[in-house]
Design a protein around this nucleic acid. Structure first.
Lengths: 293, 293
DNA sequence: GGCTTTTATGTTGCTAAATTTCATAAATCG
DNA sequence: CGATTTATGAAATTTAGCAACATAAAAGCC
């Protein structure tokens, strides 16, 4: 099944565009994905108040072979998507629904757009560099980008890599000055004009480091770095509205980290296991707790 | 289904310890997980050279409810571990596709599930407290939670609020000690047992602060805080798996920030405008650029 | 507005899939 | 070496999913 879009996205689209029965069905599915992924067609149908063939047809319309195939894909989505909240679903006021739609809808759109536009070759290239580097420097400044730089740090050091992240401009410049050809520098900036980050990339490149920028194409930072992962934020003038670009950027970090993990190979598992082990001494002694809290 | 181990491991064990037919079946399953996860019981049985009831019994012996449940778990394992479980290493392109699907699909699903199950009353309550507080303290420790604490800080201070975030345990305890009834403390912890965070919540509550925890229900932190936004990460023994919980947590932060902004009202715009203004001197002078890079 | 055509949805009955029951073969044990 | 347990399969039963057909609603059209 060559899916251009994520299952959830497709269901969501039907929840808005579909016909009456389809909308009922789609929103019922979205409201309890876990249930649907295990229930029988009859249960699903009755719970959504539609007939069984409608359910089958719906699954087909989504590009699946039938209800079984649909549930298969749903199960896979859930495996990664996880279930983090206890069900507390009661119907909501319109105002709450609006906020939810703005935040979640924005986040989903951002990720979906990233998915369809990100260049995985570039990611692969970056991962190759990282996995063979002696050290990695991760730079960002300003709220969002600095957090992303930390996030990358957080993800990479678990792979046993030597990583540093800095949001302080002086620290960026200082660490960039001692870069070597075996250093990989990764710079995050939404605008692409954060002076310290641009400088640090220039400096480190001067000393032979591999430089990567996740930033707006055409910006100063984009011009300075060797590898560019273009990241542009569509303007939205609503100041209240959260900037959902961060979700896309986090997904980029995830992609880089995961691809790097695969590039390194199974040996990373040992490092992960050790971290997990060390944490279990601090926290309650439960080996299942997530890495790094 | 109480699974202490992941499905694949359990199958492996049966491939060694089981009886003759079970060994045949188990090793056939391991040799082609993808096939088994979609095939019918009849196909599986004939391909392994055993009878259909044997297959059902096998699934039960593994702790599943039946062949359907077994295939469900297999699908989930494949969604995540597909890359290294595959006997034949995948082509580069296909591997990239998988990573992309895992990261983006996981993120989408996590956000969708949050959307359908988050308790907006609690969010509203938290926002009310924040919007009327004199100061807000945001605590987290360990990679993920500390980043979320910072993220909240980053989002709230733009609303003109007095916020601090700390991931350093000593700073957490120190700042908690000077909390007042007009302080709101927000603590992030996935496990709910990060000692400094738990302590700080207890200390600040002792001084009359309003305390909020975004953490696993039932944990030490959950018991300590007045308001609990339950957030639990399901156990999964798969270390390669990208952790999409962060997307859900980030969405929670977004929801809190946005609801708070609405609770405060239009006066926040002035603060936003000023920040934007101050940035435009540093960055390129483009008013459309996102706040804070 | 009333007619036809199209589209959406539901009802019925059939087919295939999974599971239980029961029978038989193999292994284990005294 | 028979008795008893355990492992496995065949047949019957139950259940799930689906296709074909039927009906209702909607959209055109005169």
């Amino acid at each position: 099944m060559k899916a251009t879009q994520d299952i959830i996205t497709r269901v969501r689209r039907w929840a808005e565009d579909g016909s009456k029965a389809e909308r009922r069905l789609a929103s019922m599915i979205l409201s309890d994905l876990a249930y649907v992924s295990k229930a029988t067609i009859a249960d699903i149908a009755s719970r959504a108040g539609v007939s069984e063939p409608t359910v089958t047809r719906f699954a087909r319309a989504l590009g699946c072979e039938g209800i079984r195939d649909f549930k298969y894909h749903l199960a896979q989505a859930l495996a990664v998507g996880g279930n983090y909240l206890n069900p507390a679903p009661l119907q909501r006021e319109e105002r709450e629904e609006r906020v939810l739609a703005a935040v979640c809808g924005g986040a989903m759109t951002a990720i979906e757009r990233l998915r369809s536009s990100v260049g995985m070759e570039t990611i692969g290239l970056i991962a190759d560099h990282i996995s063979t580097a002696r050290s990695v420097l991760s730079y960002g400044s300003g709220g969002n980008s600095s957090i992303m730089a930390m996030e990358l740090h957080n993800r990479l050091f678990r792979l046993g890599l030597s990583v540093l992240s800095h949001s302080d401009g002086q620290m960026q410049r200082m660490t960039a000055s001692v870069a070597t050809p075996e250093t990989v520098v990764i710079a995050f900036s939404i605008s692409g004009y954060s002076p310290s980050v641009v400088d640090s990339v220039r400096i480190s490149r001067h000393y032979g480091a591999k430089t990567v920028a996740v930033t707006a194409p055409g910006s100063a930072l984009a011009r300075e770095a060797e590898i560019l992962l273009p990241f542009s934020v569509p303007e939205d003038s609503n100041l209240y509205k959260p900037n959902s670009a961060r979700y896309a950027m986090m997904a980029i970090v995830d992609l880089i980290a995961m691809t790097t993990a695969e590039a390194i190979g199974p040996s990373v598992l040992e490092g992960l296991r050790r971290i997990k082990h060390s944490l279990s001494a601090v926290n309650v002694n439960d080996p299942r707790l997530p890495l790094g809290d």
